[in-house]
């Protein structure tokens, strides 16, 4: 770990390599050409999934498949397993890592929305030591995060919600890339407190506070979902235009809320 951080600090253009499913294709297409690659997936301290004092701890180098099939994840926050199993395809899930995915911060990736809805924290080790950042503060824009060049994500820490909490991830998939056109992660605690986050809709994953507050204060799924994706900039591409995406966000918010109600 220390060696990895040292290499990242030594001045050459270096990139951290996780599962490689975003970075390696970019290298192949010559869209990016770092001088140094630091493969962190064999660092033992970045591996492992455990429950510690009411917190689910996922090492950054765990693969999507490992998370999707983890008993600890299934027993505590099953929607993370569901979300993980909807990423890419089998081979991508076998190799791609949670840390790599959130560091890349693709607006259509599933993990950012899942972690936002889970109220996760992200542990980062860098030149100045270790810090823990709320997922809410981690994602800062289109493919951008607070990560510095020499930072390595080490862990994702997720508070295990109270008994009786329901959660889900509903994904409308882009059939070619298998990324989310719209992914809606929702968590509803027995108190009614609701967290709803979207992937694929805007420049980066976001918590939809209007939907959350409506749902938390007892609005029906339909009513709360009607407030989804208002007031945010919405992506548009050849597969889904802005207003269609917005429509889908509402449909998927409702479907997610119905599931957790």
């Amino acid at each position: 770990m220390e060696e990895a951080i040292e290499i990242l600090q030594n001045g050459s253009y270096a990139k951290v390599l996780g599962g490689g499913h975003s970075l390696v294709p970019a290298l192949k297409l010559r869209l990016n050409a770092p001088e140094t690659l630091v493969d962190v997936t064999r660092i033992e301290s970045l591996k492992g999934i455990a429950i510690e004092d009411g917190t689910l701890v996922i090492g950054a180098a765990n693969t999507h498949h490992e998370i999707a099939t983890s008993a600890d994840v299934h027993n505590t926050l099953s929607f993370l397993a569901k979300g993980a199993s909807a990423i890419g395809d089998v081979q991508v899930r076998n190799k791609g890592t949670i840390g790599g995915s959130i560091a890349h911060a693709d607006p259509s990736a599933d993990w950012p929305a899942l972690l936002l809805a889970a109220d996760a924290s992200i542990v980062i080790q860098g030149a100045d030591g270790t810090k823990t950042v709320a997922a809410q503060d981690f994602f800062t824009g289109f493919f951008s995060t607070i990560l510095e060049e020499s930072d390595i994500i080490t862990q994702i820490r997720i508070p295990i919600p109270p008994e009786g909490t329901k959660s889900t991830y509903q994904k409308f998939v882009q059939p070619a890339s298998r990324f989310a056109i719209v992914g809606c992660a929702a968590v509803k605690e027995p108190s009614g407190a609701t967290r709803v986050a979207f992937a694929g809709v805007s420049d980066y994953a976001f918590r939809d506070e209007a939907v959350e507050s409506a749902s938390s204060s007892g609005a029906s799924a339909e009513e709360a979902a009607s407030k989804a994706a208002e007031g945010v900039s919405i992506m548009s591409d050849h597969y889904a235009s802005e207003d269609y995406r917005k429509h889908l966000a509402k449909v998927y918010a409702r479907r997610a809320l119905v599931e957790v109600s």
């Binding site: 490689g20 192949k28 081979q91 190799k95 890339s177």
Partner: peptide, 20 residues
């Protein structure tokens, strides 16, 4: 890394060998 034609097993699991 989309087509899977390069899939092999590395330490027992299926991976796309074009992405490693």
């Amino acid at each position: 890394s989309s087509c899977g034609a390069c899939t092999i097993h590395v330490d027992g699991i299926a991976v796309k060998s074009c992405t490693m």
